[in-house]
Design a protein around this nucleic acid. Sequence first.
DNA 1: CTGAAAGCGCTTACAG
DNA 2: CTGAAAGCGCTTACAG
Lengths: 341, 341
Amino acid sequence: MSGKKRATIVDVAEAAGVSMKTVSRVFNNEPHVRKALKDKVLRAAKALNYQPNVVAQGLVGRRSYLIGLVYENPSPNYVVELQHGALDRLHGERYRLVVLPVESVANVAGKMLGLLRSAALDGVVLTPPASDHRQILDELSESGFPFVRVAPTRYPDIGPSTMTDDVAAACDMTRYLIELGHRDIGLIKGDPTHSATEARLFGFSKALAEAGIAPRLDLIEQGMFTYESGIEAARRLLDRSDRPTAIFAQNDDMAGGAIMAAHELDLDVPRDVSIVGFDDSQIAKVTWPRITTVHQPVYEMARSATDMLVAMLENKPYENKLEHPYELVVRQSAAAPGSSG
Amino acid sequence: MSGKKRATIVDVAEAAGVSMKTVSRVFNNEPHVRKALKDKVLRAAKALNYQPNVVAQGLVGRRSYLIGLVYENPSPNYVVELQHGALDRLHGERYRLVVLPVESVANVAGKMLGLLRSAALDGVVLTPPASDHRQILDELSESGFPFVRVAPTRYPDIGPSTMTDDVAAACDMTRYLIELGHRDIGLIKGDPTHSATEARLFGFSKALAEAGIAPRLDLIEQGMFTYESGIEAARRLLDRSDRPTAIFAQNDDMAGGAIMAAHELDLDVPRDVSIVGFDDSQIAKVTWPRITTVHQPVYEMARSATDMLVAMLENKPYENKLEHPYELVVRQSAAAPGSSG
DNA sequence: CTGAAAGCGCTTACAG
DNA sequence: CTGAAAGCGCTTACAG
């Protein structure tokens, strides 16, 4: 299958007239190799088209140079952002990224460690909701399996993590709606197994409380972070006589669904109803109108989580907690009640 | 770092009172192991929480059980579909999936083999435009590196591949527009380095020729398969007095951009202009109106390509070419000229 | 049906 | 500054 056989460290050593240990030293950038020898080795390696065998390096070093990225997420944009953050950090390193989407985090809890071990991963980046799943965190901690958590909202003491302040972000967004003049604000919650759902609910309530607005529980609907669930939840909110003048969907996919529901009910956004989201994912730029949202630093969180993990694996120092700033992104989907922006 | 040390095959052999070769036989499902011994081994393995070390297996077998997925694609939906197709096929196997997005296929040509080798991959699934890049294909073929091509449009004799008929699909879509009554149809082409761009252009011309419609080259605009490029190309087409009554964008991201451009010019879709796309990606379901498009079997192509690759690696028989059907998906973005559907 | 030996391609200790 | 030996955890031949 594989044409000519690949050259090994022994081939290079023979061609260069040195021991294989010297070749090893050169390829690992160890100090104390005379320049003359080093050049000979490099020349021989080049002639033989030598590349170290990572698998052999892995066996002796008891590691695979494989990092896993665990996610359970229906949003392609979010997933791709996570992957790019992790991959960009790994660029130029020996480590490779193995993707581990799971159907349901709850279903793999208890099997996570076995899964990671059988895949021979050196460490793993956990994203929501896995990064907040107590059983998984305990399982990994107890066995000493290296992991970093992205965007956790609870158990702050378990393991290193990167995050953004979801509570503050949701609070800011709600304040923005209140400042525009909204009082009856609907909320579409996300998947209840993601703890961001709670965090964003807290931020929402906090802003209402600050403004002295009594919360209206009848304007809170459950969604699942998917587009379809956004459509359905929004229909329930909009298809009533005392409908809210604004809707805060806990992510952009659901906000997009809400906009679709409004269109279908012949309501103008933002004149008849303002709709805002959370995440700043691609969909927020492609709906009509474009969605006012919160930019979540997904790429940055994934990137710095990967950075921490690599540091852990190499026994280098690293920050244990890193918070990345969010940002309110004002587009065209929200305006003062009755105004078209 | 890693808590208790993992049990090895020797530990299990000792605990079970057999040789390590017997343990190996049990875990590889080799025949000819007496049931009594097998049970003893399994019990010992369970007690020790033993899992075979893939890295060691890899070293002796001269393989890594790692499969790569190469893509250069700006569309998250497309990428995630590809990944899921590949992952679903790999589920339950020893193989893991390593993602290899590249900034530009042209830039890695010549370095592809080195990249795959240094990552110690057993084989690779190549997607557009890498699957059509002559230099990359030659490089891999010559060295005997196992690969399968997804959606190639040229060099049909190089290596196994899975595909769909882009020419026929684009032709069908164009016929659909013609049947609706359109004669002046604009075309937004995709990235010129992707050969699907050509294939879809051929299908477009073919349908026009069949219908006896003279092609209007001034209605052909260049895009890059991105949302932004769709906006810009559509603006050029729509911002003229003799604007087309329909626009065929070569993918959904650009079609979505075209719809945005129409909105911004205060044109109603489909009454003032029909807009259709290609791919059936998420964006086609979330714009207003939803986009009439062609469903491309991305998941299926990736899945069966991965299936072929695994068969190659295990020296099992496999189909060399597999064509998956496409499907016209009629939504609300196209109608007879001047009609709103 | 079962096992003892050799070796996959490297790095880790240890010597000099 | 350089190298010879041992070993990482398995499987591939080969014996019996």
